[in-house]
Design a protein around this nucleic acid. Sequence first.
DNA 1: TTGTATGCGTTATCAC
DNA 2: GTGATAACGCATACAA
Lengths: 340, 340
Amino acid sequence: MHTIKDVAKKANVSIATVSRIVNNQSGYSEETKRKVLAAIKELNYQPNALARGLINKRTHTIGVLLPHFINAFGMELLHGIEEKAHEEGLSVIICSTDSFGAKTMKYLQVLNEKRVDGVIIIGPKLEEEYYDYVKRMAVPVVLLGTEKFDNRLPSVQVDNRAIAYSAVKHLIDKGHERIGMIAFHENGPSLRADGYRKALEDNDIIFNQERIVFSSGFAFEDGVHFFRKLMLQAPDITAAYIISDEMAVGAITAADRLGIKVPHDVSIISHDNLRVADMSIPKLTAVSLPLRRMGRTAAEKVFQMIQTGRPSESSIMQHEIVERDSVCMLAKAVRAKQPC
Amino acid sequence: MHTIKDVAKKANVSIATVSRIVNNQSGYSEETKRKVLAAIKELNYQPNALARGLINKRTHTIGVLLPHFINAFGMELLHGIEEKAHEEGLSVIICSTDSFGAKTMKYLQVLNEKRVDGVIIIGPKLEEEYYDYVKRMAVPVVLLGTEKFDNRLPSVQVDNRAIAYSAVKHLIDKGHERIGMIAFHENGPSLRADGYRKALEDNDIIFNQERIVFSSGFAFEDGVHFFRKLMLQAPDITAAYIISDEMAVGAITAADRLGIKVPHDVSIISHDNLRVADMSIPKLTAVSLPLRRMGRTAAEKVFQMIQTGRPSESSIMQHEIVERDSVCMLAKAVRAKQPC
DNA sequence: TTGTATGCGTTATCAC
DNA sequence: GTGATAACGCATACAA
């Protein structure tokens, strides 16, 4: 591994001159430039980013904290981050924290020691401990997730209440009135459950406690379990809003076992619109979240903050409904010509 | 951000002493140790990894190159890598190269400038250009993939011929004889197609060109397209070996459209055993690859190479067949009591 | 246009 | 035990 000194020697100039040329500043003749460039090429010289970082106080590296990143959801976010980050000349170090966040503090320390230029934290909530730490790190931090989990830091999120509202409204527009929901069991109030409720209210449908069920996770298994529970609890529903694609697929499996046909007997609309949504039978109608773009946006924010030194605004990303085959019209008049 | 100097000043010692204590070497009294530790805590001092790396010539960081890492397959590998790497005190920088590997050289340069301690390359093949570069980088490199794509570098792989053999053998054991396959279209000879052929041969089943079809990808869409093609080309098959879970799910969708029931009309065995395998209807019987463990193993290898300085052996990981619902017995005698 | 010298935050080699 | 001080590889203020 050659250093700037080797180049200087080979080109018969000082290291200062080499440095100038490498960082293409001004202050040298074309002649020397050629000499130096030739030496660089010949020696295969690559500047040492460590030494550079030591001086410039910038490592062109950011850290990403994501909890149990095994799932496809986080993957999409990560992909967006990585893509944008590299476009801006930033490398990304991934830190996959376990479900309990036990490793998080350790990761934060590592990132701090490595003097990353910024941090993106993916996750449902920001522990006070983490917040304190990143604050002391004094580097740009942006939060990335589906919940507005903190307002002290800039974030990229979606409006879950609006999403739930859209989803349920979509079902209502399709003629459904007895609508169930698999929500996520949270400590505080659930924005999604709120949106669900509001959509019913606005359309003069009475809310029925029995039609909402709270899951402890977002996985396939949760879907089969809680859809079953939902159907037992509220057998008369004709549609359901399920807050993750995997769960929705699980619901279809559960329905299958229960002898319920989707969408003929009950329509299903899901949340996220990951690849699986397109792979199930029937294909899932879903609320689509721009996960990739959210990742990109988060990366863009940290980059901007790094450049300007001032905090960025939070962004709320738009969602849309992608219609596929898991939801059908209910109105009898329509049903005749357009069976589902 | 405080430096070792600040700590030294606050503790009334020299930076040398602080350094000794931080790296817990010997050569100081308990008394000074306490003082220094107190100062460190109070100032919240974190050693600068850049400065350290500059001297020690180790960054405790490795780079991972993975092509279009969007898919669940790469995710599993990555997860294994990350897990093990952090256990060994290594951070991992991800570099997601596009399908054409156009960005690869750029990434390699970045990793080189950052002086990573090692590199893991995920992918189907190693371009000569990349090989030359990593060789010049003079850091441990391990290849991670499903193909033994190069033998100049240590790798972690599986035995694709054996896998295909196992899969087809499984179908044969279940009474199938007219077995189709969706293989991957490669330039060279396909190990999987070889294994398929060998399994037939060993069981006195004649190979029929029509029953094998070559896909250009591994995705869901490829599955629906090529399964359709396969069924048109060889309508008499009773089973098929499909080389990715996503494709297998696609095949089920295609079958559905064709009015073919899986596994009643045709059994399907897939490859990889990702989460989707468990989510389709019917659930997929699949050859399971220990992707997570493969990732861990790759990380372990680079770590070892970093420590010892000598190259590591290549590893071939074991596979196993996970029986679920997409394959059924064919023998008529059996069929009577065990319909599928 | 070019070179010298200093410092970035460490570790390590000497002295004391 | 402890403390100067020289590297590590580079950028830059200052001289020339």
